[in-house]
């Protein structure tokens, strides 16, 4: 409902973006109803391990890079300000947040930020034999329960305002391309399960703010020449290119960002009934988001601020 605080579910497919296929119909169905766009990241530091990347990019999504720097030891003591130890609840007006993940580093980082950490076991890898026939529906239902959505109704008080679900490559099976394909299948089914429970116009759809974020994982510009959010060379030649102002995603306040990776951004589709915009994108793909998305490009570290605003956990600036 537009005039009540939303409750947010963020499904984060870490490193899964390049494996989305036309057959992943639930993802495309969501994109066709959602506001679609990109979240840009800075370049990865040299020699970054996969585990470090996972935590760093998650930290950026939470605008908690200082906390990550502190953890990773890449900053001086002077740089480790008090900001790094502020919890998500302190930053966002008492927000209650949980992260579902099996990644040990992310569990540790989430705890540090004040998230309740819930293991994927019991969610993605259901150990309950009784649920084995419908694992995805079960997971979808359990996730929504955390947000106070039960049996088609919205419970007045919810355990959490925000639930982040982190699904990384190799989550469902061992890490190889075939297994990652399984992960995307699973992810797609999970999106379908959530959308089925929160059908447009249903009581749950009025309060559930759903974000699906998919990233490319480790990248290089050379490998991904077609995945750039920069203006095309044809556009640059146009006389109109003289008019193009500095873009929102390249700025932090009034100051240009020093480090922006223009290629391989995260893909974001957001949807809530009567709360988000519906653009012209029809498929969950880089190409369609670039050609028809309505949200264009924003920095990843502003993502949570937008979500928090919809949860009524971020104040208005000014009168």
């Amino acid at each position: 409902m537009a005039d009540k605080p939303s409750r947010a579910l963020v499904l984060y497919g870490d490193g899964l973006a390049r494996f989305v296929k036309p057959s992943h119909t639930h993802l495309h169905s969501l994109a066709s109803k959602a506001s679609c766009g990109f979240l840009t990241l800075p370049n990865a530091p040299p020699s970054e391990s996969e585990d470090e990347r996972i935590v760093r990019e998650f930290a950026l999504l939470l605008d908690a890079y200082e906390a990550y720097s502190n953890t990773s030891g890449s900053t001086t003591k002077q740089e480790r300000g008090e900001k790094s130890s502020i919890t998500i609840s302190e930053r966002f007006m008492g927000m209650k947040a949980a992260i579902v993940t099996n990644n040990p580093s992310l569990k540790s980082f989430g705890t540090k930020l004040g998230f309740s950490v819930l293991p994927n076991d019991g969610f993605i890898k259901s150990s309950d034999e009784a649920q084995a026939d419908h694992p995805v529906d079960f997971v979808a239902s359990e996730l929504l329960k955390l947000l106070g959505f039960q049996e088609g109704k919205t419970v007045e008080l919810s355990q959490y305002d925000l639930v982040f679900v982190h699904v990384e490559a190799g989550e469902v099976n061992v890490k190889n391309d075939e297994a990652i394909a399984d992960d995307v299948e699973y992810f797609n089914a999970l999106v379908g399960g959530i959308m089925h429970i929160g059908k447009p116009g249903s009581e749950i759809s009025l309060r559930l703010h759903l974000s699906v974020v998919m990233s490319y994982g480790s990248t290089s510009e050379k490998d991904d020449p077609n995945l750039s959010v920069s203006m095309s060379n044809d556009d640059k030649k146009s006389n109109l290119s003289k008019l193009v102002p500095r873009q929102s995603y390249t700025m932090k306040g009034e100051v240009p960002r020093k480090d922006v990776r223009h290629h391989c951004p995260m893909l974001l589709a957001q949807s809530q009934y009567a709360v988000t915009r519906k653009d012209m994108a029809e498929t969950f793909s880089f190409k369609d988001f670039k050609e028809h998305g309505g949200n264009l490009v924003i920095p990843a570290d502003r993502f949570l601020h937008e979500v928090a605003f919809k949860l009524w956990k971020a104040p208005k600036y000014g009168a």
């Binding site: 008019l243 193009v244 102002p245 873009q247 009034e254 949200n295 264009l296 490009v297």
Partner: peptide, 12 residues
């Protein structure tokens, strides 16, 4: 929605 296709992009 249409404005997103404009040549000015998304700017502050």
């Amino acid at each position: 929605i249409a404005a997103a296709r404009g040549c000015l992009g998304r700017f502050p």
